[in-house]
Write a protein that binds this DNA or RNA. Sequence first.
DNA 1: TCTGGGGTCCTAGGACCC
DNA 2: TCTGGGGTCCTAGGACCC
Length: 403
Amino acid sequence: MPLPRVIAHLDMDAFYASVELLRYPELRGLPVVIGGGARHAPTWEVDAASGERRRRFARLAGYSGRGVITTATYEARALGVNSAMGLMRAAQKAPEAILLPTDFDTYRRYSRLFKAAVREIAPLVEDRGIDEIYIDLTPLVAARLDEASDAAAEAWWCAREVAREIKQAVRQATGLSCSIGLAPNKLLAKIASELDKPDGLTVITAADIATRIWPLPVRRINGVGPKAAAKLAQLGIATIGELAAAEPAWLVTHFGASYGAWLHASARGRDERPVVTHSEPKSVSREITFERDLHARRDREALAAIFTALCERVAADLRRKRYAGRTIGVKLRFEDFRTVTRDTTLPAPVDDAAAIRRAAGQCVKRIDLSRRIRLLGVRVGGLVSVDGDAAKSAHGGALFAPP
DNA sequence: TCTGGGGTCCTAGGACCC
DNA sequence: TCTGGGGTCCTAGGACCC
């Protein structure tokens, strides 16, 4: 029996909130949500009686603004608040919950720490954002099974051992817990990691699909979002099992050739995507939602200043990462939440704020600005590496280069 | 009491070229 | 007078993910 691929999906538990609890251990066990701006940062207060300095934390109650929850502790989730929920709405449900501002710089530091700890053990890591990764454990498991007689049967036992080591290494490096799913592919590993949280370790093999995957709602499939789930529900399909039982041709008629076929394959646990250990960025962008909607004419100066600042931030990001891009775009969201984008492609890549600002300004001119504006964004796409080009063309060219 | 910010990928139509 | 077929690039919008 051939060895299956052994893929792990590692998901940090309530990552932002858990990082904050490292710095404010007195909040452990309390409902805490992360979100909103820096004006909700804890302050120091002096106890009148004892003279001791104490931290004073903001509560959700009385929050006003347009922030959303990025992460909530499990205690806060128990009160019915969740990621992406508006803070105003969350304040109704859990007024006593502690509110902390997001501090991406710190989370990125912890992100680098946990990923480095994993790579020490298993180098084939695919980045999936700040708090999760896929790991291809196949070579590692194969190497450890060298002497084993019944390799296939022992593979999952061995993978479990590796996963336990990885969890321990992550905890050692960061003080944080994570949940790991182990499976023959990324799709199933991702679902598996969510089955036992926090601090879980779950194995799903091909033999488990019918019993453990099919009862789950279709939404658990990474790539089935709110729209697709609603459409499936309308068609009478709620679970992954029901999706697996649907005729592929019928799915194709309702969802198109590509997505329909993918839905069918996914429901049956089929996924051949490799773990991709390196990828180049495609675009860099900055956007901001205003505290109140701005009008193109009445708030012209404020908008112009914000617009220029966004271009400067994008330019700074590009230069720090050593990229330049040809396609400059803007994004506007109006008071009615309608979103429009315009972009333009320049003859040559740019990375300076003035050039970005000029091109972005031309894009804005093509938009009807009679409605008030809620969000403004600037994007640069079509990226090329500024100094890494030599290395890349050498790599790309090496295949066909003359001796 | 409306709904963040940073991304990727896909689709679809039109321009343009051969 | 009627009207090829393929390929690539560009643009706009939308779904989805973390």
